[in-house]
């Protein structure tokens, strides 16, 4: 092979598109020709630089909230709306109940109310479900938690959103034996705590143990009002005093709320700060108790 011939097929060689025999000729030529080796190195470098520039430019990176919406829309298309064959009957029954309750309330609050009940009515103020106050957003978060939160967000993207983990996740049960007993029953604890607050608008869609950036996570993926929320638990070491749930970090348009418990960091990753902090507060007591129980069993 001559240098001229090599120069015509250099890119096909880099793309692995040559026939085996031609490939051998190229290798033989390269062994003898320093100039062609240099040209090849430059071409390879250009290609790598182009690939990395295109992949890393911000405009080429998908918006995470769009990705989550896309997944949820497609899921609805694929599986259909979330109601069964008796949905109409249920809907009509529900509507009838609402009308009756509304009429009853109007009567009770009207001038006829006391006549009907014989007592005056004082309606309570509507209860707020753990609103996010500026206080929760400005709490100082231990550095170890902030650091682990970055990995928790990576896990949310690579595992919950894109199923693109370098290593295949294993079950929590298996991880409780091979990695850490705290994995055992983590999904059950999360599920019970979240359902107690949100009822059927939240459900667990996956639970496993994943390894990302060298960090072990017990990972529960929830679908809350058709949006993905990740609950992650990992060992972080000393987190100082038991801190309350607070916003930990934000990255790529998702927010991670976190709290520490007995050397573990617990992270809630979702699209909104408010949702992450609220969910972290709701599940906090149950998870703290789980962690302390599992640790004391070791």
């Amino acid at each position: 092979m001559t240098c001229r011939e090599f120069s015509d097929i250099i890119d096909s060689y880099l793309s692995g598109e040559l026939l085996v025999e031609t490939n051998h000729s190229v290798i033989r030529h390269l062994e003898q020709c320093r100039d062609c080796r240099e040209i090849l190195a430059v071409r390879r470098a250009i290609r790598e630089r182009l690939s990395s520039a295109v992949r890393n430019t911000e405009e080429s990176i998908i918006d995470s909230s769009f990705a989550a919406r896309l997944r949820s829309d497609l899921r609805s298309k694929a599986v259909g709306p979330r109601f069964g064959p008796f949905a109409w009957q249920l809907f009509l029954t529900g509507a009838a109940c609402v009308i009756m309750i509304t009429l009853g309330s109007v009567l009770l609050l009207s001038d006829y109310g006391p006549m009907l009940t014989g007592v005056s009515v004082n309606l309570p103020e509507p209860a707020m479900t753990n609103p996010v106050t500026p206080d929760t957003m400005t709490k100082i978060v231990p550095a170890v938690l902030e650091e682990a939160a970055e990995d928790a967000i990576d896990d949310h993207f690579k595992c919950a959103l894109f199923h693109d983990l370098p290593e295949r996740p294993i079950s929590l049960e298996a991880a409780s034996i091979t990695v850490d007993p705290v994995n055992e029953g983590f999904d059950k604890v999360v599920s019970e705590a979240i359902v107690a607050h949100l009822g059927k608008s939240a459900k667990v869609i996956a639970a496993h143990h994943c390894l990302i950036n060298g960090r072990h996570f017990a990972h529960v993926v929830l679908l809350v009002n058709e949006k993905l929320v990740s609950i992650l638990l990992t060992k972080v070491g000393d987190v100082g005093q038991q801190n309350d749930a607070a916003l930990c970090t934000k990255k790529n348009e998702v927010a991670a709320a976190c709290f520490g418990s007995n050397g573990y960091g617990i992270f809630v990753v979702s699209e909104t700060e408010g949702e992450s902090v609220n969910v972290a507060k709701w599940i906090g007591p149950a998870i703290r108790s789980h962690v302390s129980k599992r640790r004391s069993n070791v």
Binding site: S60, I62, R71, R75, F162
Partner: peptide, 17 residues
């Protein structure tokens, strides 16, 4: 859906690019 999700979604960032 689960099959599709498992096969297709890891490639969504590439497809967006």
């Amino acid at each position: 859906w689960e099959n599709f999700e498992k096969e297709a979604f890891p490639h969504v960032p590439d497809l967006f690019r």
